[in-house]
Design a protein around this nucleic acid. Structure first.
Length: 959
RNA sequence: GCGGGGGUAGCCAAGUCUGGUCAAAGGCGCAGGGCUUAGGACCCUGUCCCGUAGGGGUUCGUGGGUUCAAAUCCCACCCCCCGCACCA
């Protein structure tokens, strides 16, 4: 399906830009370079408004830098690596109706192609073609000669990835090990979040198995709180469940049957037999570390399907356990059947943790407070959470905890765990805190994957290098820096390989494929040379390790390398030079969801592989697009592909609507209303341009100076905001700020336009070019300009055109208009005539005094002004206080933008300013005006308004 | 739980770092007027409450505090959004 904008000129400019090759960038030593990129997107669907937002920001910045005179490289590529597309194909093959519908209705895939979607490679190809059209349609200023996609389906991408991984491995950044994953025993694969029927977001948790010696075996109790073993009073088992006796890594465990099965995926397990609950209940097992025999008791709270089905009981600190004791005590039948009465009576909670806000037995307190009587009461969950968290954060181990006494619970937990394992009395079991069910309907377990390859992001030295570099990087907005630093602290080793999906084979262990977030960390470097193989200057298989080592790291003897692979030495040298010219990346722009993964990995990998001078310089992050205030998602039905937005509103409207919606970490909200409004605005802009293009230019006047002055200030602000990636502010001011200036100008000139007015419009178009490039080009050509505004020079503010006097004069006129309106509003009838009284000359002394007072921060010393007024004009005694107060209020709002001299000068010219504006005021308000000075002889002033006149605030009388 | 961001007028959204210029930009919506054959677009005005003179009153999640002065600084609390590893 074609992507066609309703705006006729958009297509035209895409074509012209392409023909003129203005976005193709080659090294040019005479120009400063700027390398900006955005993360490539996974090709499992159409680009949507979320991509559109990040990419438009990137493009606007690229265009801005280009206009500033930088040699800008803005390349593009496509991510094919991953498992999701394979999943889609698989579901389609199985005849999944929902995926069919989604592809047709939401992604807009033609029905006849659906058959081919059972092939993942076809899917990625299809979307790459579709999306490339969209990227052009959006007006992104891409150098397409450098395009590529990932995986070993591409002629050379995998060579790059293999080089990267071999380099990482050689430098010790790759490790092999075990790794827990959520596992579907039926599908025999890891179950990602999106492949789940139940249990989204659930990940494996590490439980400690505390081993209680029982004959020649161990009762293995699973716990998150091994430190509480000092408070154990008994063991709970489920009286209705037959347990398994199993050999686990050479040791005999008694656990529930389900647990034995689960452990099979994690350890070496041999099931030896079963154990009846009656064989355990009433007997004793020995608690580790304290060597105390504790009785084994029955409880309904024990779920054989969770953990090991064996629980050790700490009634002082675990509400469930205390409730279990209560429940058992009152269960006469059970006590009799197992002969437990005496044992149970002796059980007393043992306090081992001191925690503020509770006495010795927090669990007892909570259970009694809530009046809980059974061990299956649902309120126990809440009580457990409360105590767990409180004790973890504030709890201290008491004197009865051996070497752990006095330590925080937090600390003791890890120490006890380590000790138990060291003594062979503890073990690890991974378990899912909640039920997870695979799409296939099978309940999942945790599997330990063996021989998993990792990137060693936990390496303290590596982290430290990254942290240090982060402190030097430009990060926009600044708040994101701390976030990055936290991520670095938190980061663990990353399982970097998978068994399924598309990607690049791990060079030294080809049964593994480099996973998607690990093969996308270094590729900006590839952009610097990808045009060579793309233009057939070097063959993909000539990009050997030696060649890449030379090009990216400067290693080896270039003559020898060239000879070995059979390419021209100069070509290799040129590639090396091109890499050195462009690298490092100056700016990478992305959505904030990539901070905790991709962007951080990107920095880690650069730091690991390249020389320091090639580490990333800047990162900009932004929020994630909402639609009409709601999160965008296919399942909500509010998913908007970029293509759809373009076809409805055009690219510039789409770009503008997104850019105006938010900046920094705020999430932009796409609102249809805004898009419509912006469409009108853009039409209006072109209307103005056409009008100006054909206008007969008149002589300049004072308002022209005002207009130019405003323009300089706007340029200054817009430029500074852009430098800091404040795209919303910058564009908002470029669009609406300048528009409002223009409207005022037209009002003041009565619609006539001077040479200056035209110059303003030309500059305005340049300032808009990074944001709405199509409209800007169209406007540029309407103005009769040749060439592209896209490569025009970005306007620089001209200090000599800043004219505070002209600005102040206009501001005074605006204020006067407001005051008159305000009066009319209150008296509720339109006056026949309005008299303006400019303050008497002597009052300028008052202005001077007021300015001094404010300058010195003594705005409260109003008494000084009052005294001064009275000493000059005793007859004003009554209103002196009022005048002084008004004076301060009026001036304090001006003093921020204008200097002392400007204000004094304006006060001297005030009469002229109002007189020359009186015609304008009449046309605006439809009222006759007379402007007088308070000093005039025989002044017409029936309501004595003239005496209330102050410098820069005339008196007004309406009749 | 841990980490990050945020709560401003009917809605969206600036302002918060650097307290006074803040009844608080801009846009939308709404109301009135203009233009127009009409609609749309466009232009002007108004849009917290009160007010027959440019003024006054009460607001910026909640509750305290600092200060001559707080949307802005400090403390506590409530609520919302995002990320947390095999989805990219």
């Amino acid at each position: 399906m074609e992507t066609r904008s309703p705006i006729d000129y958009e297509e035209k400019w895409i074509k012209r830009w392409k023909e003129a090759k203005i976005f193709e960038a080659d090294p040019d030593p005479s120009k400063p370079k700027y390398f900006i990129c955005v993360p490539y997107s996974y090709q499992n669907g159409p680009l949507h408004l979320g991509h559109g937002f990040t990419y438009t920001r990137g493009d606007a910045y690229a265009r801005f830098k280009r206009m500033q005179g930088y040699n800008v490289l803005f390349p593009w590529a496509w991510h094919w690596t991953g498992e999701a597309v394979a999943g889609t194909s698989e579901r389609l093959k199985r005849g999944d109706e929902s995926i069919r519908r989604m592809l047709i209705e939401i992604d807009g895939v033609p029905e006849e192609l659906l058959e081919k979607f059972t092939d993942p490679v076809f899917v990625t190809k299809y979307y790459t073609e579709e999306n490339k059209v969209v990227v052009d349609a959006m007006g992104f200023s891409v150098d397409w000669r450098r395009e590529f996609y990932t995986t070993d389906l591409h002629p050379y991408y995998s060579r790059f990835i293999q080089w990267q991984f071999i380099t990482l491995k050689n430098r010790g950044y790759v490790a092999i090990g075990k790794h827990p994953v959520v596992w579907c025993p039926n599908c025999k694969s890891a179950t990602g979040d999106h492949d789940r029927l139940i249990g989204e977001g659930v990940s494996p948790e590490e439980y400690v198995l505390v081993l209680f010696k029982f004959n020649d075996a161990y009762l293995a109790a699973a716990t998150l709180r091994p430190e509480t073993v000092f408070g154990v009073t008994n063991i709970w088992i489920n009286p209705n469940h037959e347990y398994a006796l199993a050999e686990v890594d050479g040791k005999k465990y008694i656990v529930s049957k389900r647990a034995a099965e689960k452990l099979r995926e994690q350890k070496n397990v041999k099931i030896l037999g079963s154990v009846k609950p009656e064989d355990l209940i009433g007997k004793y097992a020995e608690a580790p570390l304290i060597g105390k025999p504790v009785p084994i008791l029955p409880a309904d709270l024990v779920d054989p399907n969770f953990g090991t089905g064996v629980v050790y009981s700490v009634p002082a600190h675990a509400p469930y356990d205390y409730a279990g004791v209560i429940a058992l005590r009152s269960n006469e039948e059970r006590l009799r059947r197992y002969g437990l009465k005496e044992i149970v009576e002796k059980i007393k909670p043992i306090s081992i943790i001191r925690v503020p806000g509770y006495g010795d037995y927090p669990a007892v307190e909570e259970v009694e407070r809530l009046g809980i009587k059974t061990d299956t009461d649902s309120r126990l969950e809440e009580a457990t959470k409360t105590i767990y968290s409180k004790e973890f954060h504030e709890g201290i181990m008491k004197e009865n905890c051996g070497e752990y006494s006095g330590k925080s619970v937090n600390e003791a937990r890890d120490l006890v765990k380590a000790k138990l394992i060291e003594l062979g009395l503890g073990d690890i079991m991974w378990e899912l805190p909640e039920k997870v069910v695979c799409r296939c309907g099978t309940e999942n377990v945790v599997k330990i994957v063996e021989n998993q390859w990792f990137l060693r992001y936990s390496d303290p030295e590596w982290k430290e290098k990254v942290r240090k570099h982060l402190m030097k990087m430009e990060i926009y907005p600044e708040e994101a820096r701390q976030w990055f630093l936290n991520v670095v602290d938190w980061l663990r080793d990353w399982a970097c390989t998978r068994k399924t999906g598309l990607g690049t084979r791990l060079p030294w262990d080809p049964e593994w494929i480099v996973e998607t977030l690990s093969d996308s960390t270094l590729y900006p470097a590839l952009y610097t040379i990808s045009k060579y193989p793309n233009l057939n200057l070097i063959k993909p298989d000539q990009l050997t390790l030696d060649v890449l080592n030379y090009v990216f790291l400067g290693l080896g003897n270039v003559e020898e390398v060239a000879k070995k692979v059979g390419v021209d030495v100069d070509l290799l040298k040129k590639m090396r030079e091109e890499f050195l010219y462009w690298y490092p990346v100056d700016m990478r722009i992305s959505a904030k969801e990539l901070v905790p993964n991709h962007l951080t990995f990107y920095i880690f990998n650069h730091v690991a592989i390249f020389e320091e001078r090639h580490w990333p310089r800047g990162v900009g992050v932004n929020g994630m697009v909402n639609i009409e205030g709601e999160k965008m998602s296919k399942s909500r039905g509010n998913f908007i592909p970029l293509k759809k937005a373009i076809m409805k509103y055009g690219a510039d409207v789409t770009r503008a609507t997104l850019l105006l919606a938010a900046e920094d970490l705020d999430d932009p909200d796409w609102r249809e209303r805004n898009a419509i409004e912006i469409k009108n605005m853009i039409n209006q802009l072109l209307r103005i341009v056409r009008e100006v293009a054909s206008a007969e230019l008149v002589e300049e006047n004072a308002v022209d100076s005002w207009l130019m002055s405003r323009l300089q200030r706007r340029i200054e602000n817009i430029t500074e905001w852009m430098e800091n990636l404040k795209t919303r502010k910058a564009f908002h001011d470029a669009l609406y700020g300048l528009y409002n200036d223009w409207r005022w100008y037209i009002r003041r000139t009565g619609g006539s336009i001077s040479k200056i007015g035209r110059e303003f419009i030309e500059t305005w178009i340049k300032l808009l070019a990074p944001f709405i490039p199509f409209t800007a080009e169209e406007a540029w050509s309407i103005l009769g300009k040749s060439g592209f505004v896209s490569v025009e020079k970005w306007p620089a503010p001209r200090g000599e055109l800043i004219n505070p006097e002209a600005e102040l004069a206009e501001e005074l006129i605006m204020r006067l208009m407001e005051d008159i309106r305000s009066i009319i509003n209150v008296i509720k009838e339109k006056p026949k005539k309005v008299y303006i009284y400019v303050a008497s000359d002597w009052k300028r002394g008052l202005l001077e005094r007021t300015l001094n007072l404010l300058k010195e921060g003594r705005s409260r010393e109003i008494g000084e002004l009052i005294k001064w007024i009275i000493s000059n004009k005793p007859e004003l005694k009554k209103i002196a206080a009022n005048l002084a107060k008004l004076m301060i209020e009026n001036i304090s709002s001006l003093i921020q933008n204008y200097r002392f001299e400007d204000l004094m000068a304006a006060a001297e010219r005030e009469l002229d300013i109002y007189k020359s504006a009186s015609e304008f005021l009449t046309s605006e308000l439809g009222i006759e005006f007379e402007v007088h000075s308070e000093d005039e002889e025989g002044l017409y002033d029936p309501k004595k308004k003239a005496s209330s006149a102050l410098p820069l605030r005339p008196g007004i009388y309406a009749e």
